[in-house]
Amino acid sequence: MRAISVLSDLILPLVIVYILSCGYSKKINVYEVFIEGAKEGFKIVMDILPTLIGLMMAVGILRSGGTLELISRAVSPIVRRIGFPPEAVPISLMRLVSSSASTGILLDIFKNYGPDSFIGRFVSVMMSCTETVFYTMSVYFMSVKVTKTRYTLAGALAANVAGIAASLTLCQYLWG
């Protein structure tokens, strides 16, 4: 448990030190390159903003109108049996379909339960180890016109379910 928290504290500083050292050893003007990269980051966020407004508005409607609560309550008897938080069902499903829509639900969970609540921590970890399967698959396979994807979908879903199960187990162990 301590090891995991040490890892959390160390990784960002270590990555920064490592990359800076690489930059200096290649005689790069690191400060200028940093500024250049930061500008790109600025542009990325600005590109995300309209999407996020649209999707957070939609999630806001789902939340305030009671739909999210309705879904949680409907699935609650089934998922509780395996110890899965019912409030996390909508985001787990959405995660497979759209990255920005699941981000909208993530922020909604942070707002309603707080990022340091059990559910807030669980969805944070869960979002870090899952991917938007359906979107990625269709883009990649469509680009080469492959129609028979065989066991790809099953494999990707299995990997994501494994990630979700691992997140739940680990979060229960750490913060349960």
């Binding site: 990555v15 920064i16 990359i19 800076l20 690489c22 930059g23 050893s25 290649k26 790069i28 690191v30 390159v33 940093f34 500024i35 250049e36 990269g37 930061a38 500008k39 790109e40 980051g41 600025f42 990325i44 966020v45 600005m46 995300i48 903003l49 996020l52 407004i53 999707l55 957070m56 508005m57 999630v59 806001g60 409607i61 939340r63 909208g104 922020l107 909604d108 707002k111």
Partner: peptide, 30 residues
């Protein structure tokens, strides 16, 4: 919620730009 998307993006602007800046150095360093 629409309003909140903007507040979130302001925080994102800082963190994301910091990260892409650092990563740009890594990219240039091969």
């Amino acid at each position: 919620s629409a309003k909140e998307a903007v507040t979130v993006c302001i925080t994102m602007l800082g963190v994301m730009s910091m990260w892409t800046g650092i990563m740009k150095i890594g990219e240039e360093a091969g």
